[in-house]
Nucleic acid binder design. Sequence first.
DNA 1: ATGTAATTTCAGAAATTTCTGAAAGATGGA
DNA 2: TCCATCTTTCAGAAATTTCTGAAATTACAT
Lengths: 194, 194
Amino acid sequence: MNLPPLVQSFVLHFGEMGSRWGISRTVGQIYALLYLSPVPLNADDMVEKLGFSRSNVSMGLKELQAWNLVRLQHVPGDRRDYFSTPDDLWTIVRTLAEERKKREVDPTLSVLRDLLMQNPSSEEERHAQARMRETHEMIELLTGWYDDVRRLETERLVQLLSLGAKVQKILEVKDRLFSLPGSRGRSDDTKERA
Amino acid sequence: MNLPPLVQSFVLHFGEMGSRWGISRTVGQIYALLYLSPVPLNADDMVEKLGFSRSNVSMGLKELQAWNLVRLQHVPGDRRDYFSTPDDLWTIVRTLAEERKKREVDPTLSVLRDLLMQNPSSEEERHAQARMRETHEMIELLTGWYDDVRRLETERLVQLLSLGAKVQKILEVKDRLFSLPGSRGRSDDTKERA
DNA sequence: ATGTAATTTCAGAAATTTCTGAAAGATGGA
DNA sequence: TCCATCTTTCAGAAATTTCTGAAATTACAT
């Protein structure tokens, strides 16, 4: 591996982390390298810096493209493909969330919906289905929230995240101000979503 | 595999999903089985229902215990170990988040902090460090938020999630009500966190 | 203590995933 | 067109992960 020490440590760490996620060590390293690079890199650059085979780099780049995580560009007068990551880290995070949802959450939701349609033919299956219904509801709640916040502009999103649980306080104020006495002040909020 | 069809489909699906996460197919299946089961199960039950070796089940249970995802219990007059998942799905989700943070995020933060302490010895390293700083900040923002909301009672958390991006609207109202003219109304919100 | 039932460990087998080199396929001049 | 350069594909090699059976360990009852 042919990299400045700081870069190398980062690249190695992300390789390891990569394998805890769905991606391979190689792909993790390629991405880390691109992420830190001040300029776009071509496949041979990566071969040279990371020290694995040309074909492995090719595979890795293909996978990163499937994840929408890299941009392919061209340098004038050079017909090799150059790759880079988006400059804005938020763009990367959003893409990551989107793609993971597509690969992991959506298929699960679809399986759950399918199983919930079927008729339980025993007490055991009835209980299992109840559990699945619960699971389905939680995932819908979570993805519903995600679907909402991903539409926010980054600045707004950051603001919201910085606030953390303090939103809670503001909600309480709002409840006190606008709810009818006796009401919990939630009905209209929760319904509107649908 | 010796399971009612509904249960089997669910178990198989979670086995596959499991391998997209850090856990093996086996572990995923064991957990899915426990999750759907109306009663606690012992290791032999699992061997019988899932059809893999006793030792594999033992390993799987050990891993699930390391993740804090199962409860070990005993039935009177039987000295085998029985396992179950928490009844409350939120408890499971919270544990999952906690453990994943511990395994994935915390080590990354620590590597980043370490690398940010070091002196860049080239323009390339300087640029890389800037990128790492950005990364570090984003992770801190995200985990800060997480740290905040995980303390909420479940009911409050659900309320917050149901609200989705509509909090934004309420914040705008609050800004209009309480900000000095010309101020963006953010300074106190963001500072208070520290 | 001794025996029995249950659990864990662990070395190697089996399966899966990752990686490579060689060959095939593109692409863009001359 | 042909040639040079770059990229992709793919079959098998290498590495890693998962799984098993046998042996070791633990825990409890007599």
